[in-house]
Every structure is written in C-alpha cells, then in structure tokens.
Amino acid sequence: MNRFVVISGCSGGGKSTLLAELERRGHAVIEEPGRRIVREELAGDGAALPWVDAAAFARRAVAMALADWETAARLEGWVFFDRGLVDAAAALEHATGEAVLEALGRAHRYRRQVFLTPPWPEIYVNDPERPHGFEAARAEYERLLEAYAALGYAVSILPKTSVAARADFVLETLAV
C-alpha cells in the first residue's frame, strides 16, 4: 500500500521516539511487533522471547505483522509502521534459514520509500525489552538494509538529529 510507511533500522536508533512524534502530529502508527511480543512473553512463560527461542519469536512477529497489515488497511491517511513484515521475515530467515523473505516481502508491499535509523551508539540503551548489545543491533541493521534493498525498496537513512527534525525529514520526503 502506498500509504503504509515503514520506519525500521537499528535497535535503539530512535524509531519508537520518532513514531511517537509522528503520532503526536496526527498520523496513525502501528507499534513494533517485537516489543509487543516481548511484553506479552515477559508477562507469561517467556517461551518465545528472542533470546530464548528466536525462531518462535520471529514466527509470532510474522503473524503479528500480517495482522497489523489488515488493521492498517482500515485506517485513513499515512500509516507509519514501527518495523513490519520485512523485518519479521528477515528475522525468521536469519533464525531458521527458511527462505521466507522473498515470498512474504513481495506479497505484502509497503510504500517503496522506507526509512531506516542507523546505528547510533550515543543514544543506544538496553532495557528489559532490549537486552542485546549494540553489536547485535548493528548486525540486525545490516541484515535489514540488505533485505529492504533486495526487495526493491528505496531506503532513506534517517539523519542523526533531533526527533522533530527527523519527523520533518520523513514528512518532507513523503511529500515529494
């Protein structure tokens, strides 16, 4: 869908903060599947936590991203995704070796223009939902950069600047 915009990239790179700003400006936002899954798993038995069972986590992320796609279709205007199906499929492929990225990534398209937050060690922090280190986040970023490019998306790397300036950059880029 041409109005479905993905904000992806490096963990701890400021995606969620940027999306909160876009939501504050009146745009629809779909929360990252991974964060929702981790919260649910931490409240439950924790069997599908990414650091416990990466494949189970990725399968849940794919299912949730597909459900998010359906939910977003009922929303008006720009819909900004904090990660999406490409991220989930890339995680599943990385965890299991199953070749799912191409099929899933081509069947459910987002706007061709995607935005990636680059590795930014100065703002990277761990939290209970993100216990992995910066190098793991950087490796994930590299996989996502490859995945989006391989699927024909035009990737814009977000500048390392204020949240407001990043939001302006996204909206100005989409206006072109």
Rank of each mutant, 00 (worst) to 15 (best):
Val125Gly: 12
Asp82Val: 01
Val5Gln: 11
Leu22Cys: 11
Asn126Pro: 02
Leu42Gly: 06
Ala164Gly: 08
Tyr141Ala: 02
Val114Trp: 01
Ala67Lys: 12
Arg111Phe: 03
Thr71Asp: 12
Trp69Asp: 03
Ala54Gln: 13
Val38Lys: 00
Leu18Arg: 09
Asp87Val: 07
Gly13Arg: 04
Gly44Ser: 15
Tyr110Lys: 00
Ile30His: 03
Val125Ser: 11
Glu142His: 13
Thr17Trp: 00
Asp68Val: 03
Arg39Ala: 12
His108Arg: 15
Gly14Arg: 00
Leu174Thr: 07
Trp78Asn: 07
Val52Ala: 04
Glu98Asn: 10
Arg106Val: 12
His108Thr: 11
Lys15Pro: 02
Thr161Met: 01
Val163Phe: 07
Pro131Gly: 02
Val176Pro: 13
Asp82Pro: 05
Pro159Asn: 07
Trp51Gln: 09
Leu22Asn: 10
Trp69Lys: 10
Arg112Cys: 09
Pro159Ala: 00
Pro159Tyr: 00
Ala89His: 04
Leu18Ile: 02
Gly84Lys: 09
Trp120Leu: 01
Leu104Ile: 11
Trp51Ala: 05
Glu102Trp: 14
Leu42Met: 10
Ala55Val: 08
Thr161Lys: 12
Lys15Ile: 02
Leu151Gln: 12
Ser16Gln: 06
Ile37Cys: 06
Gly77Ile: 10
Gly44Phe: 03
Leu42His: 11
Leu101Trp: 04
His132Phe: 10
Phe115Ser: 07
Leu171His: 06
His27Arg: 09
Phe80His: 06
Pro119Lys: 01
Gly13Leu: 07
Arg112Lys: 15
Val170Gln: 03
Arg166Ile: 04
Glu122Phe: 00
Ala107Leu: 03
Pro33Asn: 07
Val6Met: 10
Pro121Arg: 11
Val79Ile: 03
Ala147Lys: 04
Glu21Ser: 05
Thr173Asn: 01
Tyr124Leu: 08
Pro118Asn: 04
Gly46Thr: 09
Ala55Ile: 09
Leu75Pro: 07
Trp78Ala: 03
Ala175Cys: 00
Glu76Gln: 13
Phe81Arg: 12
Ile7Leu: 13
Ala73Ser: 14
Ala67Asp: 15
Arg24Pro: 04
Ser8Met: 06
Tyr141Trp: 13
Thr71Gly: 05
Glu142Phe: 11
Glu102Pro: 14
Ala91Pro: 10
Asp82His: 06
Leu42Arg: 12
Glu135His: 15
Arg166Thr: 10
His108Phe: 13
Ala165Ser: 14
Phe169Lys: 02
Ala65His: 04
Gly152Thr: 05
Ala47Asp: 12
Arg112Leu: 07
Ala67Arg: 11
Leu171Val: 00
Arg74Trp: 12
Ala147Glu: 02
Glu135Asp: 15
Thr161Ser: 14
Leu158Ser: 02
Arg35Asp: 06
Ser156Asp: 14
Glu32Asp: 11
Ile37Gly: 00
Val155Ile: 15
Glu23Val: 09
Arg35Trp: 08
Leu18His: 06
Val6Lys: 01
Arg106Ser: 14
Val52Asp: 07
Leu144Met: 14
Ser8Phe: 01
Ala65Met: 02
Val100Phe: 01
Glu135Ile: 00
Arg106Gly: 13
